[in-house]
């Protein structure tokens, strides 16, 4: 039985429209900006009517940025590749370390386990700069500054706690007796972890991996401080558009569109999966 009154329906529709406008406006505006020149972007008053151009995208793909002061070399495609590589590798390492750790925290209640798990989570609380300054010095001393390995290592501060805490909830949700049943049938705990726990926690692991990927992709500060131009991801690479002759808004917008495209597509594709995955793991108190 439908108990929603017409007035309520209209108000709801209105509220949803406001929310959608609020959240979608920046994305749509950036998208429109990416097809405009700096002149049309900066005109007053702004307008949604313009002659679209692909010059911004061409500049990004060819790596040649035309400014009033001349042609600048930019490494946007390189940055894009760096983002992809750093995020994928970080999540892979994060899963490799985080999933067994999550299993241990979820299943084996050992002395201090909660403290260790909380300490790992607390990495997320600290301002990144707090870690970065000492880390920069250490990394320079041990030769990890400006290396992919060093960056992937530092990215674990972002992905590892996330994976650990989400996946741990999943492992805790699997009835322990299913694993016991497998173990008592003649299998080691490692085989039980591989054959029973991992497949059952699969959706949670996928959701955690996806979320960690997005977080890693969006990171800015670690790569800004620890990497030089050829190792920097798109988030840092976008700074190249702040040139001596002004900010290249068109290229910035195109850069943003290109850089959010993979995570946006990924999130859209796996949206239901992600929401289900994350909420399932959170059900158990």
């Amino acid at each position: 039985m439908d108990t929603v009154s017409p007035l309520e329906r209209v108000l709801r529709g209105l509220a949803i429209t406001v929310v959608i406008l609020f959240f979608m406006f920046p994305i749509v505006w950036i998208f429109l900006m990416s097809f405009q020149t700096n002149e049309t972007i900066l005109r007053v008053p702004p307008s949604v009517v313009f002659e679209p151009t692909l010059t911004n995208y061409t500049a990004l793909i060819t790596g040649k940025l035309e400014t009033a002061a001349g042609t600048l070399e930019i490494a946007f495609m390189r940055n894009l590749w760096n983002s992809l590589f750093l995020s994928t590798a970080s999540v892979a390492v994060g899963l490799l370390l985080g999933v067994p750790a999550a299993y241990a925290f979820g299943r084996l209640k050992f002395r201090g386990s909660e403290d260790i798990a909380f300490t790992l989570l607390s990495f997320r609380f600290a301002p990144p700069l707090l870690v970065l300054l000492p880390l920069t010095i250490y990394f320079q001393k041990i030769g990890l500054a400006d290396t992919y390995v060093g960056l992937i290592w530092v990215y674990q501060l972002i992905v590892l706690p996330l994976i650990l805490w989400i996946v741990r909830g999943y492992f805790e949700d699997i009835p322990a007796d299913i694993e016991y049943a497998y173990r008592i049938a003649g299998h080691s705990w490692f085989s039980t972890f591989r054959k029973i726990a991992l497949p059952l926690a699969g959706p949670g692991i996928a959701a955690a991996g996806l979320l960690a990927f997005i977080f890693a992709w969006n990171n800015f500060i670690f790569a800004l401080v620890l990497a030089s131009a050829d190792k920097q991801p798109v988030t840092v690479g976008a700074l190249a558009f702040v040139t001596a002759s002004g900010i290249q808004y068109g290229q910035v917008a195109a850069g943003i569109v290109l850089s959010i495209a993979p995570t946006f597509a990924l999130a859209l594709y796996a949206q239901r999966y992600l929401v289900e995955g994350l909420s399932l793991g959170a059900v158990k108190g």
């Binding site: 007796d177 049943a181 173990r183 008592i184």
Partner: peptide, 20 residues
């Protein structure tokens, strides 16, 4: 000894069948 080395079989109250 761990369960695997005890040579016991068990039917669980919560069934605990492998869902996959």
């Amino acid at each position: 000894l761990p369960p695997v080395k005890r040579n016991v079989a068990m039917a669980f109250e919560g069934y605990s069948l492998y869902p996959t």
